[in-house]
Design a protein around this nucleic acid. Structure first.
Lengths: 339, 339
DNA sequence: ATGAAAGCGCTAACAG
DNA sequence: CTGTTAGCGCTTTCAT
């Protein structure tokens, strides 16, 4: 079943080799021959067999995308950027979810599954300490990471430290002095974004001559509910913060909710700033540092394709700029004279 | 490069055929032989070449997922269910986004790309009128749809008509009589969910002896902004509706926002009900008809795998139950005596 | 510019 | 239960 390159060759009166060349756009084929072959192929409704082509050439024409989550805003948004570019390049996209410590998938290791199956791998924001990450990198194929930096591996990220500084500085500029932070999880297997954003927060405070008070840190596990719980915890302190930096928009959403539950007005009684530029942030009037997430995916995929073609990885991490978008969730320190 | 089945065969002192059988768990292999082969294979760090296996067997071991969107809640949530099941079954998942009329991707048609590349196809909620859909189905391979029904093609959906009736009846029970609806888009290429939910809305109204007033329909294009605009339009009418059924949660979110912008309280001044059970609906206190989206994906993938194994498609559409979750966005008709 | 021919690494009869 | 033997459909030297 299925018509083969041989059928096309016969019908076109050439050898299979010529058909192969003609159809792949290789040089050294007479233009008239090429056109005839193309015509015959399309007349016969010929479709190349990828398996055969892969076996013979050694290339699979596919890229694996490895991610800890699929149904989360950041991840599926990156994914859509990646998909767009790969599709354009006529590459197959193999999707694999590996979960993380919050999301145990109890699956067999990915790395072996990828071995002879793809030409390259794109890893989205897994915690750098994830053992699977090492195995993937050790596969030795072209690999690139998004939202995560591993020494020696090409990566595309925002400058998380700078983004956090930006957010925190905004709060400082508004006159806030008692600053809270909603982090991911206490230390274990932190994401790159996690540690870097905490760092930026500290840097900004320190630069402004403020103390980093560990009591003003709560953990939201990058979920809405987590953010809500964290904010609730912060609010229950003797002297709650007047402004809070949430490491992600989703946690900030939860924080906003906690605020309302306490009868506090965001941006008036307590300020909240997030990081992400989540679709909903505008809707919820959240001040946030916007990162171009789709672009992250797109750029990573593109640089991976280049690496596949040229063979030379872009070792210097690619940093994509972010932007502070001020909305209603942040405002001047209450009691501060307006001006 | 790469070690082959022959290396394993030699090292184990058997033929390649036996190695192949042993490693694939086929019967008619002595258990001791099998174990020895497995041992040798793992010692040698042998990984089968999928391309070779595919070429020889004619099976690709992969399933394509075709979707109009990746970075949208419904779609990525379905996708994660699908991925989970396919992974479990050790099948590769090839992701392809084809866009829709709102999201022109200007790509080459998918169907040919899928031809010899996958064993089966899963289509997520494309409009039934999408020409690409026909081409995909006409490929003649095992195909199954999610959130979309095509006669003769296995599908997994909720009962959209019933879901809409449920939502609408809830509003009726609360005493509302002047009911608005936020639809997707005016007629062109409607999604199955779109037409069916409108139908359910009408049915419920008619059953309650109420008129369906076309002036109370606005379109939100399944986005937050669209929902906001639609609600704004409804509110600007001489006699605005007291309750509105939004065909999706995301549009309902926009409607809530429009309400607030007009100084109206959801569930008090105007009631809003959605469909989906979006992550954010709880957070935004939206009454909604929850559909088990991850399950939709999971069930579809599972039935597709069965079809692949048994060869017999489940032609009767699989209907997954939904559930009304009442929250603060709906309340009794204003002015109605409490009781 | 084109063709001949040798595989790529595996599976699937068919024997035994 | 195991081995032998053809391919699967393409790509790729190497000739011509």
């Amino acid at each position: 079943m299925g018509i083969t390159i041989r059928d096309v060759a016969e019908a076109a009166g050439v050898s299979t080799a010529t058909v192969s060349r003609a159809l792949r756009g290789l040089p050294n084929v007479d233009e008239r021959t090429r056109r005839r072959v193309q015509q015959v192929a399309s007349d016969l409704d010929y479709v190349i067999s990828p398996s055969a082509s892969r076996l013979a050439s050694g290339r699979t024409g596919s890229v694996a995308v490895v991610t800890p989550y699929i149904a989360r805003w950041f991840f599926c948004t990156v994914l859509s950027g990646v998909e767009d570019v790969l599709q354009e390049a006529d590459m197959d996209l193999l999707l694999t979810c590996i979960g993380d410590h919050n999301n145990q998938l109890n699956r067999s290791p990915v790395a072996p599954r990828l071995r002879r199956r793809v030409d390259a791998i794109l890893v989205i924001a897994v915690p750098p300490s994830d053992p699977q990450l090492r195995e993937i990198i050790d596969l030795g194929m072209p690999t690139s990471t998004i939202g995560l930096t591993v020494p020696g591996v090409p990566s595309v990220t925002i400058d998380d430290v700078a983004a956090a500084r930006l957010a925190t500085q905004h709060l400082i500029n508004l006159g806030h002095r008692r600053m809270g932070i909603i982090g991911g999880s206490p230390s274990e297997a932190p994401f790159t974004a996690e540690s870097d954003r905490e760092k930026g927060f500290s840097q900004a405070l320190t630069a402004a001559g403020l103390d980093v008070d560990p009591i003003l840190e709560a953990f939201g596990y990058f979920t809405i509910e987590g953010g809500e719980a964290a904010m609730t915890a912060l609010l229950s302190q003797p002297t709650p913060p007047t402004a809070v930096f949430a490491l992600s928009d989703e946690m900030a959403f939860g924080a906003l909710r906690a605020l309302r539950a306490h009868g506090l007005r965001p941006g008036v009684d307590v300020s909240i700033v997030g990081v992400d530029g989540h679709d909903m942030s505008e809707h919820l009037d959240l001040t946030t540092v916007v990162q171009p997430v789709t672009e992250l995916g797109r750029i990573a995929a593109e640089s991976l394709l280049v690496q596949l073609r040229e063979g030379t990885p872009t070792l210097e991490p690619i940093r994509v700029p972010t932007q502070l978008v001020v909305r209603g969730s942040t405002g001047p320190l209450p009691g501060l004279s307006r001006d």
